[in-house]
Amino acid sequence: MTRTHKRLTILDFLKRAIFLTLGAILMAVALEVFLVPNQVIDGGITGISIVLSHVTPVPLGLFIFFINVPFLILGYKQIGKTFAFSTLYAIGLMSATTALLHHVDPFTNEKILAVLFGGLILGLGIGLVIRFGGSLDGTEIVAILLSKKTRIPVGQIVMIINVFIFIIAGFVFGWDSAMYSIFTFYIAAKVMDIVVEGLDESKSVTIISSEYEEISEAIISRLGRSTTYIYAKGGYTKEDTQMIYCVVTRLEVAKLKAIVHEIDSKAFISIQHVSDVLGGNFEKNNIH
């Protein structure tokens, strides 16, 4: 048993290393082959590095690496050792790859194409690194540390930081480039979400109904999804009941609603987005 566990651990490590490497290289390609030659920037520390490399003779890769490292060290306790080393590896490789690609001719000089393909590749690279336990930008670390002191949500801090970066880009590269950069950032963010969360989105569903047994059986037999009962007590009626909890795919939501309303038209249904599903038995049961 011990040997098997060790073999699985090595495979997991290799898988992580491969995808961290791929993600870092993809981001470097997006920057040096599509975005930077067309004066389009990314958000976060990468965006700051692009601006600084434009106004100084220092290569982009050096700025990306050396600006990120202090925040990695600062946030070491908050993000954990594995995440810190994965991030350090990804950022180091990405910085080195940008240096290697710096003199490669851009694939296109059309800004629209650069934004579309650059944003797509950028989001794919960042998404792969995040999915496999790392990061390619220290902005999130800065935001986490500031959030603890200011009580402002992390997402809002990241947005505020990026607004300032795109304003600076407007003064340095021109306002057309700044607006192109905002679209690039948006495209990259959407692609990153798809890579991290997957195309087959899952939804968690909570159902409250007096007909919970019949509804649960119908979900199992007609949708092939397992259900879980959660004890509940009515706040107004004070009656004991059972809530039904299950996880379905986005495409199954409509059918689940139809099944529930067919049995109890007054049933309460709460549907929430699930970013990831791990463990348990999420595979569909065979329906005959």
Rank of each mutant, 00 (worst) to 15 (best):
H5Y: 11
T9P: 02
I18L: 14
T21S: 15
L22S: 14
G23K: 00
I25W: 04
L26H: 08
V29F: 14
E32C: 09
D42S: 11
I45L: 12
T56E: 03
F63H: 12
L72R: 04
K77N: 13
F85C: 11
F85N: 05
S86T: 04
Y89D: 06
A90L: 10
F107R: 01
T108W: 03
E110P: 08
A114P: 06
L120A: 12
L145H: 03
K148R: 14
I152V: 14
P153T: 06
V154N: 08
I157L: 10
M159Y: 02
I160D: 08
A169Q: 00
V172G: 01
D176I: 00
S177F: 00
M179H: 00
T184M: 04
A188E: 00
M192E: 15
I194G: 05
V196G: 09
G198F: 04
D200G: 06
D200M: 07
S202K: 15
E213A: 07
E214D: 11
A218R: 10
A218E: 13
I219F: 08
A232M: 08
A232W: 07
M243V: 13
I244R: 04
Y245T: 03
V248C: 08
E252N: 11
V253D: 06
K257Q: 07
V260E: 02
K266A: 15
F268P: 02
I271Y: 05
D276P: 02
N281C: 10
F282C: 06
E283A: 10
